[in-house]
Simulated scan of single mutants.
Amino acid sequence: MQPQPFKIAIAEDAITDLRNRLNRTRWLTGIEGQGWSEGTDLAFLQLLITYWADTFDWRTQESQLNQLPHYLAQVHEQTVHFIHQPGTGTAPMPLILTHGWPGSFVEMQQLIPLLADPASHGGDAADAFHVVVPSLPGYAFSPAPLHKGVGPYEVAGLWAALMQGLGYARFGAQGGDLGAGVSTWLGRRFPDQVSGIHLNYVPGSYRPPLGPDQPPITADEQAFLDRSATFADAEGAYAKLHGTKPQSLAIGLNDSPAGLAAWMVEKFQAWTDCSGDLHSAVSLDALLTNISVYWFTGSIGSSLRPYVEGRNRPLSFAAGERVQPPTGVALFPAELPMPPRSWVERCFDVQRWTTMPKGGHFAAMEQPQLLAEDIRAFFRPLR
């Protein structure tokens, strides 16, 4: 594997085309009092689209992203885009961070320096990491697979090979959303390479063995299952669509930046710890940088593939099967339904379980300092 340095350089005509499309948005007529109750609030979206077209400066954001060391590498048959930030400390620990949907490597922009150089950000140099942040296949600058069958299970194999190719025989893994699934598969498939996994979300497809030979479901576990069912009924239509008929949706989102923003921003509003005011959790520039990466790379269609593949290979366990490496879990209060510790311990070796004071699903963007501190604390005894 021979990584090649990479710089983000979006063509000027692509930026002009985006602005032209934004200015030609054909708006719906809203219903009084609709707000966010049935999807993205039209008033908020109009504000966002106006800002995107007239004020947002992609070149400034591009320059900031390029301050991080980007690379492309051929890993098996897949080209992978990744950030590789060497740690500053006495003995940095290799760590791979995996994003999810509708996020990207952009989520990790503030988190990376806190982990790679903790001493410069109020931490201890002994907690430094060599940080690797790849883009999932079909996301951002990692090209889409050309065939079916590349889901979280297979991505774990790519990540293990990537880390080995970078010279890291043993490493930690961290993730939320789809990245939690990839990180879990890493621990499950490669226990001799993975020193530990840290999750800020427990994969939604995780199912421990249940039945007469297993411990009975507790009241807390049943309450979690009930919450999950309620969430799936009220908020889960997106995942059902992503996992069954994503192509029809993707054609429209790939053609309309306003449509793309509407589909993505609803999740940021619903899943962040913002009390209904998204500005309080994620800045418009951060939000639009992430959405712009999807737009400029035309990756919304391929970004939905992990939902299809995950349905085909869920993270289920037979009796006696476990994730061997130690596991840490950080519970942010505005996260999607999260299970109690007992549910996770049925198949994971949980060694750290932290209830966070604030934050939501996009923890690396919302609360990078809190997340960094918990990651450092979890891996400290595993170095």
Rank of each mutant, 00 (worst) to 15 (best):
F129K: 02
V132G: 07
G175P: 12
F105N: 12
M93W: 03
L166E: 10
A261W: 00
A372T: 00
S303F: 00
W353H: 05
P3L: 06
A270V: 03
T25C: 12
A281I: 01
L284D: 11
I197N: 10
H76Y: 09
W263K: 02
R322E: 12
L178P: 04
W27H: 10
T88P: 04
N290Q: 09
L336P: 06
Q369M: 08
F296N: 00
L225I: 04
S256V: 13
L47A: 13
Q34I: 15
A262D: 08
Q61Y: 10
I8H: 08
G328F: 06
P368E: 03
V131K: 05
I291Y: 02
M264P: 00
F141R: 11
P86Q: 11
Q67I: 01
S37G: 10
P208F: 11
R207F: 04
W185D: 10
L111N: 01
M1V: 15
S195N: 10
G236F: 08
T16A: 06
P326N: 08
F378S: 00
L22V: 05
A270K: 12
R24A: 15
G320S: 12
D233S: 09
H130Y: 08
P246R: 12
L260F: 05
R24I: 03
W295E: 00
Q46N: 11
P333Q: 01
K148W: 03
A281V: 02
L97V: 14
D255E: 14
A160W: 08
Y71C: 06
F129H: 14
P191M: 10
L260D: 01
A180R: 01
L287V: 02
P69V: 01
A261S: 10
G328T: 03
I300A: 01
V155C: 05
F231D: 06
L95I: 12
R170S: 12
F6M: 15
F332I: 05
A258F: 02
M338I: 01
L304I: 03
S283L: 08
T327W: 05
E345Q: 15
G100N: 11
A125T: 09
Q324P: 02
E32Q: 14
D349C: 13
Y168D: 11
P145Y: 03
T289Y: 10
T40Q: 04
H76M: 15
G328R: 00
P86A: 10
D273G: 09
A161C: 09
G301N: 13
T60G: 11
G39P: 12
G122I: 09
G172S: 06
